[in-house]
Amino acid sequence: MSIQHFRVALIPFFAAFCLPVFAHPETLVKVKDAEDQLGARVGYIELDLNSGKILESFRPEERFPMMSTFKVLLCGAVLSRVDAGQEQLGRRIHYSQNDLVEYSPVTEKHLTDGMTVRELCSAAITMSDNTAANLLLTTIGGPKELTAFLHNMGDHVTRLDRWEPELNEAIPNDERDTTMPAAMATTLRKLLTGELLTLASRQQLIDWMEADKVAGPLLRSALPAGWFIADKSGAGERGSRGIIAALGPDGKPSRIVVIYTTGSQATMDERNRQIAEIGASLIKHW
């Protein structure tokens, strides 16, 4: 067993022997301040990774656009098919120029040779490549099948209805392509620590998230040296922004954090800054 596999296998073990965790309302004060600064709703939840206990939450059962955070769930569904012998990570998928959609920095470079399922998941999570996500959605049967996968996990809230990039439209009061912070946090925890996926697939999923290259201005910008984070960000229309993450000190994750916002007129930089400040408060009061 590799060191990384050992780390993920012992996530519940280490967490069980940690000192009790206590909620700190100071972080919620910052979440509410972010709402004021952005002029928009902000949803927040913080779960203990081992027990699933909610440590703090704000608007945990209000719907927010998922945006690209759905790509972690998508690759979880792909990995479940791999575990069941219905898919192979090494299978190569070929596609054409007509398949390319807006923001496809990886797939646009491989029109000639195609990409493997493993490479597509890596591109979808680490670079948020939209064509990679659409190609992977095709392998599982489309958005409705991802929703069905989530329902089978016990998540009857999260739903995907459309493809990239239309799913980022974020129309107010439109339930399409949305989740709730509580539902997303619980589902992410199941994917990373539950028995739904094999140990190898859980490790692969967290490795992809740990290698995320496009979430630097968010929670990662607030992390002290030595902290662990595996995350996936999302951005959408109407001032929408979000991030889902597993993080913790001492090089291992111990909490799940989900943050979503929508309806702001603020710039992307300002949305990023507010999420980073929430992260800084979380870490300060850990």
Rank of each mutant, 00 (worst) to 15 (best):
L79D: 15
A235C: 05
L218R: 08
T198R: 08
K32W: 02
Q97V: 14
W227S: 07
F70E: 03
L38P: 01
V42D: 03
G226T: 03
P165G: 06
F149A: 09
G141K: 00
N173L: 10
T107A: 12
M153L: 05
F70P: 03
G90V: 06
L28T: 13
S68D: 00
R118I: 03
Q203Y: 02
P224G: 06
R271P: 06
L111F: 14
Q37P: 06
V258L: 08
H110C: 00
E164W: 01
P249E: 02
Q86K: 06
R189Q: 15
R63H: 14
A84W: 07
T193E: 10
I140A: 11
R189T: 11
T262H: 08
D231G: 09
L282Y: 01
Q86T: 15
E164Y: 02
A246V: 07
D207V: 08
V101Y: 05
D129K: 00
E35F: 04
K144S: 10
S68W: 02
G239W: 14
G39W: 14
V157R: 08
E210N: 08
G52V: 08
E145R: 09
E166G: 11
V72R: 00
E102M: 12
L136M: 10
T131H: 08
E119M: 00
W163I: 09
T158M: 02
D250T: 04
P105R: 04
M153E: 11
I171H: 03
I229C: 09
A148H: 13
S240R: 03
H285Q: 05
L223P: 11
L47E: 09
T158P: 08
E35I: 02
F149I: 04
A245N: 08
E102Q: 03
A235W: 04
D207S: 11
L197N: 10
A276S: 13
K284R: 08
A84L: 05
A276T: 10
T27D: 05
N173V: 07
G39L: 12
L47K: 07
I256W: 10
P105N: 00
L160V: 06
D207Y: 06
L188K: 01
T27H: 04
E61V: 01
P249K: 06
E119H: 14
A266Y: 14
K144P: 10
T262V: 12
A124I: 11
P143C: 10
V82M: 01
F228D: 12
R176Q: 10
R118F: 14
R91N: 05
L192T: 07
V214S: 15
V101I: 09
V101M: 11
R220G: 04
L160S: 07
A225Q: 03
E46Y: 12
L188C: 08
G236M: 03
F70V: 03
M66G: 03
M180H: 14
F228A: 04
L199A: 13
D83M: 02
A77C: 00
F70A: 06
T193F: 06
A230V: 12
A222H: 09
D129S: 00
D161H: 13
R59H: 04
D174M: 06
D155F: 15
L79V: 08
P65M: 07
S233K: 15
A235S: 02
I275N: 15
H110W: 01
T158Q: 04
P253L: 08
T262F: 06
D113E: 00
E175F: 10
E210C: 04
N173H: 07
A183F: 08
E237R: 07
T116E: 08
P172Q: 12
K71R: 01
G39H: 11
G85W: 15
A200T: 13
A170M: 10
E87S: 13
V29W: 00
T27A: 05
G242Q: 11
A34W: 13
S57M: 13
L136T: 12
L191I: 04
A123S: 15
E145N: 04
I244N: 11
M67R: 12
A185Q: 12
V42S: 02
V42K: 08
K252E: 09
N152Y: 13
V258W: 01
L28A: 13
E26S: 14
M115G: 02
E237L: 10
D36F: 02
G263S: 13
C121D: 00
L192D: 10
V78L: 12
D174T: 04
K109G: 15
T179M: 03
E270F: 04
A77G: 00
G85Q: 15
V29H: 05
L89Q: 02
L55M: 15
G279N: 02
L47A: 08
S254Y: 09
G194Y: 10
G263I: 15
L160F: 11
R176N: 05
T126Q: 00
D155W: 06
R255K: 10
W286F: 04
D161Q: 12
R273K: 03
P25Y: 10
A211D: 08
A34K: 14
E237H: 09
T158N: 06
A170D: 05
L120G: 03
I275M: 12
S201P: 12
K284G: 07
N50G: 11
E102V: 05
L100P: 02
V117R: 01
N98D: 00
T193P: 07
R238H: 06
P249A: 10
K32D: 05
L120R: 01
L49Q: 04
I93E: 03
T27W: 00
R241I: 07
L188I: 14
A148K: 13
E62N: 01
P105E: 14
W208G: 03
T126S: 09
D231P: 06
S201I: 11
N134V: 08
I243V: 05
D161V: 06
I45T: 00
C75T: 12
E164M: 00
R59T: 11
A246K: 01
P105C: 12
R241V: 05
A266E: 11
T116F: 02
A211E: 08
P181Q: 01
K190Q: 14
P253M: 04
R118Y: 04
E166T: 11
P224E: 02
R255C: 13
V117E: 07
D269W: 07
Y260G: 08
T262G: 05
E195L: 01
L146S: 14
E26A: 14
L150F: 13
L192S: 10
R271Q: 02
T158D: 06
T193A: 08
T187Y: 08
D99K: 04
S80W: 01
V101A: 06
A246I: 07
V31Q: 12
L191W: 00
I259H: 10
K144A: 09
A246L: 07
G76D: 01
T262S: 05
E237I: 11
D177T: 12
I45L: 00
L150C: 12
I256K: 05
K109R: 15
N173D: 12
I171L: 03
I54V: 09
D36Y: 14
F58D: 01
Y260A: 04
G76N: 12
I125K: 00
L192G: 11
A200C: 13
G263C: 14
E61G: 04
L55S: 09
T187A: 11
G239V: 15
C75R: 02
K232C: 15
V258F: 07
Q86I: 10
G76Q: 12
P65R: 02
A215Q: 02
G141L: 04
A133M: 00
L219C: 10
G114C: 13
R271H: 07
R238K: 12
N134P: 04
F149H: 12
Q88D: 05
K71E: 01
V42A: 12
P165A: 03
I244G: 11
G194I: 12
